[in-house]
Amino acid sequence: MSSSAVETESPDLVCELDNVQGMVDALTSVRWKRHQDAVLELSEHGLILIVEDTGCLQAKVYLQRELFVRYEYSATGRPRFGVSLGLFVDCLNTFCIPGHSSTIEFQYPGPDMQLLLKSTDSLSSCTYAEIRTRIPDTISWDYNFEPAGSTPISFTVKSSALKEAIDDLEWPGSSIQITMQPAPPSVTFKGEGHGDLQIDFMYYANMDLLTAFNCDQVVSHRYKYKFLRATTSNIPSSVIKDNRGSKLTIGRGGMLKVQHLVSVAKPSHSHPHVDSVGYQPPSRIAYIEFFVKPQVDEENAYDS
C-alpha cells in the first residue's frame, strides 16, 4: 500500500488501453457472483486483479504492461486497493460501444484515492469515471501453489470442452472428483449426488481435445461443484471461439489451478488509418488463474 503518491506530483500509475472489450472479457471471467470485492495490485509489470470466495476459491487476472499502449508506473512498492468487481466491469462496459473504437486512460490515485478512467479517442465526446477505492482486506488465505511432486501434474484441454464437461456435471451436483492417472493417460471427472455422472478424457483417444498431459502418479481429489463451476461459468465467448486450451494443474494437497488465456488483441478493423498495411499487432493475452481448494475428505482424497 503506497501513500507516497499523494505527496509526489505524479500518480502511481497512468496507463492507456486500446481494447477495453478484452479487459472486460478478462475481468468478467472471474465474476462468478453479483457482489464481489476485488483487490487491484499495481506494479511495474502490470495490473493484477484478485478475487476470493470463502477461503476456498481465488482468482487472479494478470494484465501485463505489454497489453497497454502506454504504461507509466512511478510508485515504489506495490500499491493495492479494493474495488467492487461488478461496478468496475459495468463501468468499463460503458466505455466499449459497439462499432466505436475506444481507447481508455486509467489513472491511480485521483485526488481522493479514486481510480480515474477516461476515454481519449475523440475531442467532441468524452466518457469518464471515478471509482471509489477501499483499503483492501488482507487476503484471508494463502494460496501458495506448489507442485505435488517432481513433475507438475497437469493437463490442457480445449476450453469449450472443459466448460461443457463442467456444465454437464451440474446435474449430479455438490461435489466433483477429478482423477488423473498415467496408465492409460486419462482424466476423469466424476460427480456423485442425485445420481452419478462420469466424464472421461482419454489422452490417446482425444488428442485434439486433451492437448497436453503430464502425470506420473494417480491423483484424485474432490472439489465443491460451485467452485469448479466458477472457473468456467463466465469464460468469455471469445475464449470459446478461439478455443485455445485451458490448463489444469493439481498441486500439493490437491490444490487445483485452472488457467485460461484471454485475447486482448486490438480489434483488427479499428483504426485502419493508423495501422499501416500488413502490420499485425503482437498477440496480446491476459492470463486468468483460478485456485480451488480441495474438499477435505480423507476417504476419497489421496496422493498415491
Binding site: L87, C91, S125, C126, Y128, R132
Partner: peptide, 12 residues
C-alpha cells in the same frame, strides 16, 4: 453514487 461517478460529455 457513493461508489462511482460515471459520465459522458458530447460537445459541439
Amino acid at each position: 453514487t457513493s461508489l462511482i461517478t460515471l459520465g459522458a460529455e458530447f460537445r459541439k
